[in-house]
Structure formats: structure tokens, C-alpha cells
């Protein structure tokens, strides 16, 4: 389960660049998650995106 805090997001786009099947940016540049439960094939990319996010807006809950 991914939590993306749009109040913290600064729109750097690292998430959308790293795991484009899971994250996108809206017209204001802020993160939107395309799915709450990404498939196993995306796990590594999602973990990497969480780690790369410069603002700390992304969290993997229940892990």
C-alpha cells in the first residue's frame, strides 16, 4: 500500500521517472498514484521511488 502526501510533494518528478506505471504528476506537478496496490513486478521500482523522493512525500505502508 503506497501513501503519497500531496501536501509535502514538491513535484520533483523522481517518482514518475522511476516507476511510471505507479506514479504520475497532475497538472500542478504533484504526485498522483495510479494504483494503490502495485503488482509484484513494480515492487523494486516503487521502493526505489520512495527512497529517491527528495521531499519524503512517499511512504510504503504495511511494510
Amino acid at each position: 500500500m503506497i501513501e503519497a502526501d500531496r501536501d509535502i510533494c514538491i513535484g520533483a518528478g523522481m517518482c514518475a521517472l522511476t516507476a511510471p506505471e505507479v506514479f504520475d504528476q497532475d497538472d500542478d506537478g504533484l504526485v498522483v498514484t495510479l494504483t494503490d496496490e502495485p503488482g509484484p513486478e513494480s515492487t523494486d521500482a516503487v521502493k526505489e521511488a520512495v527512497q529517491l523522493c527528495p521531499s519524503g512525500a512517499l511512504r510504503l505502508a504495511g511494510s
Partner: peptide, 12 residues
């Protein structure tokens, strides 16, 4: 300020 600009610089 940053918020006003991020939409212009998205990956897409």
C-alpha cells in the same frame, strides 16, 4: 513559488 511552477516541469 515552487508550487506555482512544478506543473510546468513535470516528467510528462
Amino acid at each position: 513559488y515552487r508550487r506555482l511552477l512544478t506543473g510546468q516541469f513535470t516528467v510528462r
